[in-house]
Write a protein that binds this DNA or RNA. Sequence first.
DNA 1: TTTCACTATGTACACGTGTACATAGCCTAA
DNA 2: TTAGGCTATGTACACGTGTACATAGTGAAA
Lengths: 345, 345
Amino acid sequence: MATSEEVARLAGVSRATVSRALNGSARVSAEARARVHAAVASLGYEPDVVAQNLVRQHSRTIAVNLFPENSDHPLSHLSQSSQYFYLGVLENIEREAIGLGYDLLFPSHTYGKPVQNYARSLQTRRVAGCIMLHANEARIQNLIQSSIPTVFIDKMGQGSHATYIKSDNLAGAGQAVQHLLSLGHKRIAFITGSTVDLAGLERLLGGQQTLAQSGISSDAGLVRQSGWNVEQAYEAAKTLLAERHDFTAVVAGSDFMAIGILRALTEQGLRVPEDVSLVGFDDIEFCQYTSPPLTTIQQDRVAMGREAVHKLITLIDGATDVSPLIIPTRLVVRKSTGPAPENGE
Amino acid sequence: MATSEEVARLAGVSRATVSRALNGSARVSAEARARVHAAVASLGYEPDVVAQNLVRQHSRTIAVNLFPENSDHPLSHLSQSSQYFYLGVLENIEREAIGLGYDLLFPSHTYGKPVQNYARSLQTRRVAGCIMLHANEARIQNLIQSSIPTVFIDKMGQGSHATYIKSDNLAGAGQAVQHLLSLGHKRIAFITGSTVDLAGLERLLGGQQTLAQSGISSDAGLVRQSGWNVEQAYEAAKTLLAERHDFTAVVAGSDFMAIGILRALTEQGLRVPEDVSLVGFDDIEFCQYTSPPLTTIQQDRVAMGREAVHKLITLIDGATDVSPLIIPTRLVVRKSTGPAPENGE
DNA sequence: TTTCACTATGTACACGTGTACATAGCCTAA
DNA sequence: TTAGGCTATGTACACGTGTACATAGTGAAA
């Protein structure tokens, strides 16, 4: 492992000149620069990143928190949808980081440590910033009060160095309902994920609002809440079907929930989409392979990953604009939605 | 940000004593130790990890390479199955790292840089070791020749500080065939993933071997190769069905491929499992939600993540045993396999 | 009392880099 | 010629920690 000292000796200059030649900014004579680069090449020198981080007081590293912190079995406690969704976002965070030359750090050591040390713990690692795919209220507060540039995803954390990014769940649910309305549906059921989660609440509200704007009064009996997974959505759909049959379409809180609802409908002998139309949310890959393939509202994972990194970089560079970014969703029409049946039920 | 200097001043001792008190090993008087800990608590001191890494010449960080390196669009170039499979392994790597207090580093900055600098680039970041979920031959060689402890997953890289972990694809395919044989199937088709990949080759060979051991001669016409995805497997199955109908079971190279095959079978009016049984490979989550739910060979993602980290730690600690770890697979019987039909076809 | 072993602690250097400041050399303008 | 400015470069300190070595103090054995 060659050091800049050896490069300097070989090039016949001082270590300071080596540093200046490699980091560009300061003026160095063309001749000295050439000798330094020759020495670097011949020794295969690479600067010691840890030493650079120490003296520069920062690093080109972004901390990423992918897993909920209150669990020793991370992903299995995630809801099924968010698992696939966040991993898709991570993919695009990484892709963007590649372009900008940033590394990604999963600060696993923070699990089980006191929350109030979280930000400090990241600071001692000199991370440039932080992207939180999961965060409880304590960590949000801890980060906001620190000086670490932070971007929250799907959590509304905001501060002088922190902001957030989320999908436009409100408009997304509106797109789903609008699509169904345009197909002639009037009695639309909602099987929504937990409204304790912001996403669950927004998706329900967005649907109801669009319904109301079309002059259709809300029917509380057609709104059911369930956990964000196949099994609970299946149960919720079965319960709904046991009580009511007067709807022609269902809006699901997520694609996984739609899979459970689809099964419940099919078991009751209802055909999708001839008897009942069904719309999911997320556009996970499996949507294409259900029968029928699922019409859904796509969350833009590419944009979320990319914009999270871009927004973070601006914060790292000192930007003071901490207005949140709301990413548009997109209706993807497949085969689970069709015209409303002529005679109501 | 308090430093050990301030802790020392407050505790009325020297910085060396602070360091000794916190790092435990050396002998410090009980009184001094107590004063140091009191000062640490009152200042909220946390040691600077970057400075520690510099002086200790290593860090508690494991580099993880999740994405193929020859691509600026990483995951989208992954086959569908390996995408979900490797992310599951990553989950368990992280889980294990939490327990051991290691951070995970995604060295994104290495993309697009010359391969021969890869290991050195990790060294300048003082990583303790490296887990490669993807690696081309050049990187394997580069890492093996370096002194960085490395564990490859599904690549047979081995060296004085490097070894590998993989699923027992051979035995796994055997389990699939054995299951079908026990149900009375004799004419079994194979739609396998690319045999350029080790996994594809092993899964085909393992199936054929088990068949041969039962005295059933191999029928080359019942073996088809396709890409590792739904669409190509669907096409391969359609082509097979256009030529032959004399098989009662299909072994797929992966679960995603099984989904495509299932569709092709269904479109031909064949019932699964009444007319044709179908076995997948991987046990991705979606297997439970196809109709019928898919019988498959489960790869043990929990064990692979956990053992990859454990094996790496032993290498970091200086172990010289670099024998590979072959993780057993498990047959998961669901509804896509049943008794062979009485009259052959 | 003297010697020796042992414990607790402080001093000083090392890790590998960036950069403020000083300085030597050179050119230009007066 | 001389003063002044500008450029290229070297010196020395800083980043925050770990630890080898030296040393002062203590107690026990002779």
